[in-house]
């Protein structure tokens, strides 16, 4: 499968990339790792006339951690996220989720920015970023703006990003010290998107849950932040009855498609199971 023809550009600064995006207009697409885009181009589901490769834009490649404030450059690869011990120490959720994405070769090229900008409900990082309360930094011809991860996703492949904007970084506050987190994903095989997956971050004090955040992957048109389910947990001892109520509240907001991964009802059922198990695992990890 040979993709359609395009002109290839490789700007070396963010300004040049933004300039190209504005002058080339909607016929241009950015390419980061290419591991969502090139498969789409092979299928002619994407046919850009210009491809703007961000690999030489050094300012997009850093992981910065400053007193609990984390900024991940858009061009940081999944493999680099996994390898960052400093990041893993304050937010192990990212490594755990990254290791469940695709396979080693794909993680070597696939980037965090491409993963969250893509807008495919199958991508794992969007729900993780919603769970962490992350903010996306966007730069366009009119300057920079911020959009919360929870407001970014509008429908499958439709996001709040304008065609001429570049997602430059993902920012979030590291979860509180002593928090427990987990990302659990049911998939048919390595390299498959989730049948359903859940991200959970919990804070526990004196046996009671004091803060909770739950996100869901691939059980709707967009990633889902399960706010009601999270609220149910807060103040409880995470007893079975409360966790069951939270599971049901999470299931209630799902609307998965029936596909090769199973009928809609099955995927909704699994979403609840992933939430239940991720809560238990996060609880066991909280200090």
């Amino acid at each position: 499968m040979i993709p359609g023809s395009f002109e290839y550009h490789r700007p070396s600064s963010l300004d040049d990339a933004v300039g190209l995006m504005s002058s080339l207009g909607e016929d241009a697409l950015l390419v980061a790792g290419g591991h969502s885009l090139i498969p789409m181009m092979k299928l002619r589901m994407a046919a850009p006339e210009h491809l703007i490769d961000l690999q030489d834009v050094q300012s997009l490649k850093s992981i910065s951690i400053d007193g609990g404030k984390v900024a991940l450059g858009a061009m940081v690869t999944q493999a680099e996220l996994i390898a960052s011990e400093e990041l893993c120490a304050i937010c192990p959720l990212l490594k755990e989720a990254s290791l469940q994405i695709a396979d080693p070769q794909i993680r070597n090229l696939g980037t965090i920015g491409g993963n969250v900008a893509n807008g495919d409900p199958g991508n794992d990082m969007p729900a993780v970023m919603q769970t962490l309360g992350a903010t996306y930094m966007l730069t366009g011809p009119d300057g920079e703006r911020e959009v919360a991860a929870k407001d970014f996703y509008e429908a499958a492949y439709f996001t709040a990003r304008e065609d001429n904007e570049i997602l430059t970084a993902i920012c979030f506050d590291a979860p509180a010290k002593g928090h427990g987190s987990a990302y659990l994903k049911q998939k048919r095989k390595i390299g498959d998107y989730a049948t359903a997956a859940a991200a959970v971050v919990l804070e526990i004090s004196g046996g009671n849950c004091t803060a909770a955040s739950i996100g869901l992957t691939n059980v709707g048109d967009t990633p889902l932040l399960a706010e009601e389910a999270s609220a149910i947990l807060v103040g409880s001892s995470l007893d079975d009855d409360t966790v069951k109520k939270a599971m049901e509240a999470a299931r209630a907001i799902t609307d998965p498609a029936s596909d090769g991964r199973g009928p809609k009802e099955f995927r909704t059922h699994i979403a609840g199971i992933m939430v239940q198990r991720a809560i238990a695992l996060a609880q066991s990890r909280a200090k």
Binding site: R10, G34, H35, I38, P39, P104, Q105
Partner: peptide
Amino acid sequence: SVKSCTVFVGQ
């Protein structure tokens, strides 16, 4: 290690 079926020659 990369999968060369998913890399453009320019990249």
